[in-house]
Simulated assay, not measured.
Amino acid sequence: MCGAQLRLGAAAFCRGAALRGGGGHLNRQFKQHVGIPLADYTVKIRMGRAEQLLPDERLKLTDLAPLVGYASSSHFASAFKKYSGKSPKEYRERLQRSR
């Protein structure tokens, strides 16, 4: 599976697993089914969306956080830097220079 199919498949899987057991069961089953822990999968999806949105200079960097599932722009910025090795600002600037 890839892209939207993986997200839809994972979402359906989570609903089913949640009905069968608690959070620990869900996490184990999710990792077995998808290959990565649920928390890592969530970060990967959020950061992928952030990478899609960052080239749009009409969006302020502080406006990206809620669009990708973070309540705090500082939490988003630190998560993005951990994920990509660059802050959202550095990432955007690098994209601009490469055009």
Score class of each variant (00 low, 15 high):
2 C>L: 13
3 G>D: 08
3 G>Y: 04
4 A>E: 08
5 Q>C: 10
5 Q>P: 00
6 L>E: 15
8 L>S: 11
9 G>I: 04
11 A>E: 09
12 A>G: 14
13 F>M: 10
14 C>S: 12
14 C>Y: 03
16 G>K: 07
16 G>H: 08
17 A>E: 03
18 A>T: 06
18 A>P: 00
18 A>S: 09
19 L>F: 10
20 R>S: 11
21 G>K: 05
21 G>E: 07
21 G>V: 07
22 G>K: 04
24 G>I: 02
25 H>K: 08
25 H>I: 06
25 H>T: 11
25 H>M: 09
25 H>R: 08
26 L>V: 12
26 L>P: 00
27 N>H: 12
28 R>F: 04
28 R>L: 12
30 F>V: 01
31 K>C: 11
31 K>F: 03
31 K>R: 15
32 Q>N: 12
32 Q>D: 12
33 H>Q: 14
33 H>I: 06
35 G>C: 09
35 G>E: 10
36 I>P: 01
38 L>W: 05
39 A>Q: 15
39 A>C: 09
41 Y>H: 13
43 V>E: 06
43 V>R: 12
44 K>W: 11
45 I>W: 03
46 R>V: 04
46 R>L: 06
47 M>S: 06
47 M>H: 06
49 R>D: 02
51 E>F: 05
52 Q>K: 14
52 Q>C: 11
53 L>E: 01
55 P>C: 03
55 P>T: 04
55 P>K: 05
56 D>C: 05
57 E>C: 08
57 E>F: 02
57 E>S: 10
58 R>F: 02
59 L>S: 05
59 L>V: 05
59 L>M: 09
60 K>L: 13
60 K>H: 09
61 L>V: 08
63 D>A: 15
63 D>Y: 07
64 L>Y: 01
65 A>T: 03
65 A>F: 00
65 A>G: 04
68 V>W: 02
68 V>D: 01
69 G>S: 07
70 Y>P: 00
70 Y>S: 06
72 S>Y: 10
72 S>Q: 15
73 S>G: 05
73 S>R: 10
73 S>Q: 10
74 S>E: 13
74 S>M: 13
75 H>E: 14
76 F>L: 05
77 A>F: 03
78 S>I: 12
79 A>L: 03
79 A>C: 10
81 K>C: 05
82 K>H: 13
83 Y>C: 06
83 Y>E: 10
83 Y>H: 15
83 Y>K: 04
84 S>E: 03
86 K>Q: 15
86 K>I: 02
88 P>I: 01
91 Y>S: 01
92 R>S: 02
92 R>W: 01
93 E>L: 11
93 E>V: 06
93 E>R: 13
93 E>W: 01
94 R>C: 08
95 L>I: 14
96 Q>V: 09
97 R>M: 12
97 R>D: 14
97 R>C: 10
97 R>S: 15
98 S>L: 15
98 S>I: 08
99 R>Q: 10
99 R>P: 00
